[in-house]
Design a protein around this nucleic acid. Structure first.
Lengths: 150, 150
DNA sequence: CAGAATCGTGTGCATTATTCACGTTTTTCG
DNA sequence: CGAAAAACGTGAATAATGCACACGATTCTG
């Protein structure tokens, strides 16, 4: 328990985070992944599909909170995903105001293809890593993200 | 050197990355930081200012490459930053096509305030971390980001 | 060395994304 | 019960983004 951490470390950590986030935000990365997966999917929609898969069943407002955008934006994108048959929405049984979204079978197939493609790309990029280092990064990053979201 | 890493680890790592990136991308975070810093700055412009500070002197195209957006978008935002007197642009001496951007003194003051504010917030969030753990995360994340950027 | 191809930058235009204001339905709670 | 709040959606206004293109600077190439 520290009141003040080493500024050097904090700045270095921040720099690494910015580099990582910029890299992940790159539209070209998504294009590459979609190409590797070999599926036809609008790259604007696929991050949302991934999040419905991960956090679903989930409503519009909660998902909007999570991604930091207005709920109306998410509402429209979810409508598109629904029209494409990738997600499914039905009123929640416990709260009929929320229309819970889940991935359909067709959506699940796409998610599977995307996950497999991402794993192939990751293995190509991370050839020099040991499983031990990766797992350490995973654990530390999980803790960090949780603290950030708290 | 592994051909295939443990899928569990990779998926867990990916999940943590998504959580982190979503959290960082949240506009509310930037608002919070700007408020803590006590400066009047459009939250859309401040990520760009931070990157000019970090990578500058830097031209439009290189910065656009780095952030993954179209170069015309960056060009317009840089114009705004210049009008606000936060950055300065002058033709490069080695290549007169590029107009190298650097932060002005006024821009530097803002960056300093932002960095100080971020550090205060970070120390509040990371009370339970030791410097050792933080530095380990920093080192692993730096390596990861570098590998990702190839 | 001259012409062609490439690169960095910026502008006009069209498209798309995002927000804002508002209304509806459902739930919560005093 | 009844008021307040929450989840969701629609329409209109606004902002952001990308594309086509132009122009000067630079590099490539025969």
């Amino acid at each position: 328990m520290n009141n003040a951490h080493d500024s050097e470390i904090l700045r270095g950590l921040h720099a690494a985070i910015i580099d990582l986030v910029d890299e992940i935000n790159r539209p070209r990365r998504d294009d590459r992944l979609i190409e590797e997966a070999g599926i036809p999917l609008d790259r604007a929609l696929f991050p949302l599909l991934a999040r419905v898969w991960r956090y679903g069943p989930i409503g519009v407002v909660e998902l909007a909170d999570r991604t930091g955008r207005d709920h109306t934006t998410i509402s429209r994108q979810m409508t598109k995903l629904e029209e494409l048959g990738l997600i499914e929405r039905k009123p929640s049984m416990t709260d009929r105001r929320v229309r819970e979204a889940t991935v359909t079978e067709k959506g699940q197939e796409m998610v599977d293809l995307l996950n497999a493609a991402r794993e192939r790309l990751a293995n190509r990029i991370l050839v020099d890593w040991t499983d031990e280092d990766l797992d350490q990064l995973r654990a530390l990053l999980r803790r960090f993200a949780d603290d950030l979201m708290r």
